[in-house]
């Protein structure tokens, strides 16, 4: 039963992810006064791309071919194990350090693929992505660590369950600091404004797009899908860590239905908020980004100290 729920949760996230992307685009278009595309457009793009043959650059090796499956597989693993709809995860595999590591592994695979193409843009994107990842990873680890101090465990399911059963325990100074830090880290990790602009194709500002420039057809579909999935995963984690209401803590059909509905509503709300924020904010210059990330790191460190000292 647990296995079925976990797999169902992964399928839900995989299906939902392109719609989340579509939602951010739709909200953004509406706020900018455009009609925009329909919610399901990312799915249609994926379907079209999946049917086309991929092209490998002549200098590329196995690393280029392997990166999209690795990226998608690591994202799917997180989608299976982490508590999004229900907290009964698989065999405690939803350890938050493992989750951070898995997400980073996907980013590393893509960065190596960018370098593997031998193009200037691929290298540029990889270099920038890894710089940002190097500065984001400590923040991610620290802020979730601040939350785990409260529970005494790094098991995500335990953290979310504790929040779901005692909603008042979520509102602590440490939680607020950690939420701010984690929100900035999420923006950076997903390549959103102000760290990166997902809709840019201006060479000098690209980060994520520069790495995946050489991908086409099926490979590109996998990369795009995985990116959407990572966005959904991080928004879902943010939602469930700081607003764990509605998460199914036991496996009854009603609880699961409520959990699914609550999850979709929370992620949809956060995605809309993200899009609205992107309309209002401007992208930072690349070399201002470390300042932002250092700020979020400081917030996370304060969160851990607050959690340790204030209890």
């Amino acid at each position: 039963m647990t296995v079925l729920v976990a797999l169902g949760q992964a399928v839900l996230l995989a299906v939902l992810a392109p719609y989340v992307l579509g939602l951010t685009r739709a909200v953004r278009a509406r706020l900018e006064g455009r009609a925009g595309r329909r919610l399901g457009q990312p799915w249609r793009d994926l379907r079209k791309l999946l049917r086309k043959p991929p092209t490998s650059p002549s200098d590329a090796s196995l690393f280029f071919v392997a990166a999209p499956p690795v990226l998608l597989a690591t994202s799917l693993l997180v989608a299976v194990a982490a508590p999004f709809v229900a907290t009964t995860s698989l065999a405690g595999e939803a350890d938050l350090i493992v989750v951070v590591g898995l997400l980073l592994l996907g980013a590393v695979a893509l960065a190596l693929a960018g370098l593997d193409t031998g193009t200037a843009f691929g290298g540029m994107g990889a270099s920038r992505e890894m710089t940002i990842a190097a500065l984001v990873e400590p923040t991610l680890l620290l802020s979730v660590f601040a939350l785990s101090v409260r529970v005494g465990s790094t098991d995500l399911a335990a953290i979310v369950t504790a929040g779901a059963t005692d909603p008042a325990s979520v509102f602590t100074p440490a939680s607020a600091l950690a939420a701010a830090a984690l929100a900035i880290a999420t923006l950076a990790e997903c390549g959103r404004v102000p760290v990166d602009n997902p809709s840019t194709h201006l060479e000098l500002t690209m980060v994520h797009e520069a790495m995946v420039l050489e991908y086409s057809g099926r490979d590109l579909a996998l990369v795009e899908w995985a990116s959407a999935l990572r966005l959904t995963i991080l928004l879902g984690l943010l939602a469930n860590l700081f607003a764990p209401w509605g998460v199914a803590t036991h496996l009854t059909p009603v609880a699961l239905a409520i959990g699914t509905a609550a999850f979709i509503a929370k992620v949809g709300g956060l995605a809309a908020l993200l899009a609205a924020g992107e309309v209002l904010a401007a992208k930072l210059r690349l070399f201002r980004v470390p300042e932002l990330l250092a700020g979020s790191f400081a917030l996370a460190l304060l969160a851990v100290l607050a959690a340790a000292v204030l209890g």
Partner: peptide, 16 residues
């Protein structure tokens, strides 16, 4: 992905 799609091709890198 391979089972669903068509065979891979090789070409010089596009690089914009």
């Amino acid at each position: 992905a391979r089972a669903l799609g068509r065979a891979r091709r090789r070409a010089p890198a596009w690089d914009c």
